[in-house]
Computed example of a mutant assay.
Amino acid sequence: MAKEKVGREDPFQSTEKVMQTFRMTRELVAFLKTEASAKGLDLTAYVNRLLEGVRTWFGLPDAASHLLEADREALNMGRYEYILHVLFQRSLELREKGPGFDAPGAEKKKR
Rank of each mutant, 00 (worst) to 15 (best):
G98R: 00
R79F: 02
A30P: 04
I83H: 09
L51G: 09
K39P: 04
S91C: 12
L41W: 08
V29D: 08
P99G: 10
S91K: 15
L84I: 13
R26I: 14
G40L: 00
E27H: 05
L75R: 07
L67D: 02
D71I: 00
G53H: 00
E81T: 07
E27Q: 05
Y46V: 08
V54K: 09
G98Y: 02
A45D: 11
A64C: 14
Q89S: 11
F31Q: 15
V29G: 03
S65P: 08
L94W: 12
P99M: 09
R49E: 09
G100F: 01
G98L: 06
V86G: 05
E27N: 08
G78K: 01
G53Y: 00
R79E: 04
A38G: 13
T56G: 02
L92P: 05
A74I: 06
L92I: 13
G59K: 00
R90V: 14
K33P: 10
L94A: 11
R79N: 05
T44K: 10
A38F: 13
T34S: 15
R72N: 02
K97Q: 07
Y80S: 12
E96K: 04
S91H: 15
R72C: 05
E69P: 00
Y46M: 05
D71P: 00
Q89N: 13
V54G: 02
A64Q: 12
V54L: 08
S91P: 14
E81P: 04
V86P: 02
A63W: 10
L50A: 01
T56K: 01
P61Q: 12
L32D: 03
G59M: 06
E52N: 12
M77E: 07
R90T: 15
E81K: 02
L67F: 09
L68E: 01
E52M: 14
T56L: 01
V29F: 11
L43G: 04
L67P: 04
T34R: 15
L50Y: 06
N48R: 10
L68R: 01
A36H: 02
R72E: 03
V86C: 06
R26F: 12
E96Y: 09
G53K: 04
H66G: 10
Y46P: 01
A45G: 11
R90K: 15
P61I: 07
V29K: 11
H85Q: 10
L87K: 11
T34L: 15
G40F: 00
G78D: 01
D71A: 02
L51P: 06
E69T: 05
V54Y: 12
V47W: 03
V86M: 10
E52Y: 14
F58H: 10
Y82D: 00
F58T: 07
T34Q: 15
R90Y: 15
M77N: 01
T56V: 06
E73G: 07
A63R: 09
L50N: 05
V86D: 01
V54E: 03
L92C: 07
P99N: 09
A63T: 11
A70W: 03
L68D: 01
E93A: 13
E93Y: 13
W57I: 01
A30I: 13
I83C: 06
R55Y: 15
Q89E: 14
N48M: 05
D71E: 10
L68M: 02
G100A: 02
K97D: 03
P61R: 10
P99Y: 10
E81H: 06
D62A: 08
L43I: 09
M77T: 04
N48S: 13
F58S: 04
S65I: 08
M77G: 07
